[in-house]
Simulated scan of single mutants.
Amino acid sequence: MEMETKVTVHDAMTSNVITADPGISVAEAASIMTEKKVGSIIVKSNSEPEGLITESDIIRKVVSKDLAASKVTIGEVMSRNLISIEPERELSDAARLMAKNSIRRLPVVKDGALVGILTSSDVMMVAPELTEILVENARIEENRALSPENERSVPGVCEVCGNYEEYLEEYDGRYICEECKEDLEGE
Score class of each variant (00 low, 15 high):
Glu142Trp: 15
Asp11Ala: 12
Val160Lys: 08
Ala29Cys: 06
Glu132Val: 15
Glu142Ala: 13
Val123Ser: 08
Met33Arg: 10
Leu114Gln: 07
Glu187Phe: 07
Ala94Asp: 09
Gly75Phe: 04
Ser45Gln: 14
Arg89Thr: 09
Val115Leu: 04
Ser70Tyr: 15
Thr73Cys: 05
Ser15His: 11
Glu178Asn: 02
Glu90Ala: 13
Asp93Val: 10
Val7Tyr: 09
Ser79Gly: 13
Lys110Val: 06
Lys100Met: 03
Ser147Ala: 12
Met98Tyr: 13
Leu184Gln: 10
Gly156Phe: 02
Arg144Leu: 13
Ala68Gly: 03
Glu129Tyr: 06
Asp183Met: 08
Glu179Met: 03
Pro22Phe: 03
Val135Phe: 09
Lys37Met: 09
Asn46Asp: 06
Ile140Asp: 05
Gly112Ala: 09
Val157Thr: 10
Thr19Val: 13
Leu52Met: 02
Cys158His: 06
Met124Cys: 09
Asp172Gln: 11
Ala113Pro: 01
Ala94His: 12
Arg144Ser: 11
Met13Phe: 10
Leu52Glu: 01
Pro22Gln: 07
Asp172Asn: 08
Asp57Met: 00
Val77His: 01
Leu52Ala: 00
Thr8Pro: 00
Lys65Arg: 06
Glu136Phe: 10
Ser25Arg: 05
Lys110Met: 12
Glu28Tyr: 10
Glu166Met: 08
Lys44Phe: 01
Asp66Ser: 12
Pro49Ala: 00
Leu184Asp: 04
Glu129His: 14
Val109Thr: 12
Val38Pro: 01
Ser64Asp: 13
Asn101Ser: 08
Lys6Ala: 02
Glu86Asn: 11
Ile133Arg: 02
Gly173Ser: 07
Ile140Arg: 14
Glu170Met: 14
Ser40Ile: 10
Glu166Ser: 14
Ala99Cys: 14
Glu179Gly: 13
Ala127Met: 15
Val17Leu: 08
Met3Val: 03
Thr73Asn: 08
Leu118Tyr: 07
Val17Cys: 05
Leu82Phe: 01
Gly39Tyr: 02
Val43Thr: 04
Thr73Lys: 10
Glu55Phe: 01
Glu136Arg: 15
Val63Met: 08
Ile83Pro: 00
Asp122Arg: 04
Gly23Trp: 14
Glu129Val: 05
Lys61Ile: 06
Val157Met: 06
Ser56Gly: 02
Ala94Phe: 05
Val108Lys: 14
Leu97Ile: 13
Leu114Glu: 02
Glu169Asn: 09
Ala95Ser: 12
Val63Lys: 02
Pro128Thr: 01
Gly23His: 15
Val72Cys: 07
Gly112Leu: 09
Ile85Pro: 14
Ile18Val: 15
Val38Met: 10
Glu136Tyr: 11
Val77Ser: 03
Glu35Pro: 00
Gly156Asn: 01
Arg89Asn: 13
Glu76Tyr: 00
Ala138Asp: 09
Ala69Arg: 01
Ser45Lys: 15
